[in-house]
Design a protein around this nucleic acid. Sequence first.
DNA 1: TATTCTAAGTTCCGTTTAGGAACTTGTAAA
DNA 2: TTTACAAGTTCCTAAACGGAACTTAGAATA
Lengths: 160, 160
Amino acid sequence: MKWDDIQELPCSIARTLAVIGDRWTLMIVRDCFLGSRRFEQFQKNLGISRHRLSERLGKLVDYGILRKVPYQDSPLRYDYRLTRKGVDLYPVLMAMVHWGDTWMDEGRGAPLLYTHSRCGQTMHLEPHCSACGEKVDPRDVGLHPGPGWPQSLPAEKSTS
Amino acid sequence: MKWDDIQELPCSIARTLAVIGDRWTLMIVRDCFLGSRRFEQFQKNLGISRHRLSERLGKLVDYGILRKVPYQDSPLRYDYRLTRKGVDLYPVLMAMVHWGDTWMDEGRGAPLLYTHSRCGQTMHLEPHCSACGEKVDPRDVGLHPGPGWPQSLPAEKSTS
DNA sequence: TATTCTAAGTTCCGTTTAGGAACTTGTAAA
DNA sequence: TTTACAAGTTCCTAAACGGAACTTAGAATA
């Protein structure tokens, strides 16, 4: 199976990875959250090849994660800005931040700390149940087929 | 810059992507959460080439995300099981699930639904503040250098 | 007016990584 | 004795990546 075919699977992780599962793509999105908007800025911050960057930005625009907003005409030039769909990737990135802080800091501690302005405290993001608001343990999650599960396939057995 | 060099950056997202940012790697981890433990099982479920699978499993073991547990000797054979480090990737995967459910369902609805056994309701994972417990909006998060921020670099300006 | 500069890409080409089919190894079952 | 099974390896072609040089359109400078 080719990598590009995974977006056809009835699986939201596969469909998400089909969009942001490429090398560099999430790093570009990360850079947007840190304030980058322009080609040269991304290129300088990330050290990605211009060729690759150009292609990835195009893909992110095609998928509606970034949109091009003119910041001058003659020559016409665009900022790349996160759309709502792009901003919605925040929990994915922050989940990675927490995992990296926990497991990949090599004893040096987190490179960045996050402050919740509502409560003023340093924090990380914790997954809570959208229904009851409690913190969720993976073992307390059951799954079953939803409306988008293909009728042609048998129901999956319920695991973790 | 080569992709493999990103793990040197003082950024937990980069360090996380250095481990799970490859094609197929997160799909394999996903399959683990769904109950797969053996080579043939992964290969059949994912359609990944045996070559690639073998290499990715080895990498996941090297990074301590999976561990090999013998399930028979003669011939000696192993299950691949999630370690604590691997289980900790759950929030990353579930954040992707929610994003995929929201933006990539093509109007068909979520392929899978998740139930929180504590409260019995269908849910998704919401990012909450680990300090105050409230739901977090990206605009309410400020960042500043942490203990792992290299002393040689100037402090970053605080963005989103 | 001619030259240089800036931003945002494209082109080209050699290197890596991926994908797929066939083959291997050790053992158990028919 | 042959077949089957599980878990890889080998080998070869195709696709993706990385880096340097080049392009384009206009602005600024000499």
